[in-house]
Amino acid sequence: MRKLLLIFTFSFLFAGLPEYYYKLPLQKQKKEFKRILIPMIEKENQKILQERYLARSIFHKPFYMLDFDSLIVLSKFAKKYKIHNLYNKEEFFKKIDVIPPRLVLAQGAVESAWGKSYFAKKANNLFGQWTYTGRGLVPKNRDANKTHTVRIFKSPQQSLEVYMRNLNRNPAYKKFREVRYKYRKENKKFTAEIAATTLILYSQLREVYVRILQNIIKQFR
Rank of each mutant, 00 (worst) to 15 (best):
K28V: 07
E44T: 03
K95T: 02
Y118Q: 12
K175C: 07
K76Y: 13
S11Y: 11
E44H: 06
I72L: 14
M65S: 14
K116Q: 12
R169L: 12
I99F: 09
Y181Q: 07
M1Y: 06
Y87V: 13
L37Y: 10
F176Y: 14
L86Y: 06
L137R: 12
P156Q: 10
Y20E: 11
E90Q: 14
Q129T: 09
D97K: 05
N124M: 07
Q107F: 03
Y87P: 03
R35Y: 06
K174M: 12
F92G: 01
L13H: 07
G115P: 04
S112K: 02
L66S: 05
L54D: 12
E91V: 04
L26V: 15
S117N: 04
H84P: 03
K116R: 13
I216H: 00
Y202C: 00
Y20N: 11
K34P: 05
K80A: 09
R135Q: 14
P100H: 04
F190A: 00
L86V: 10
G136Y: 04
S70F: 04
E193D: 07
P156E: 11
L66C: 11
Q204R: 03
I83F: 08
L17Q: 03
K79N: 14
K76W: 06
F92K: 01
L86G: 10
Y183E: 06
Y209C: 00
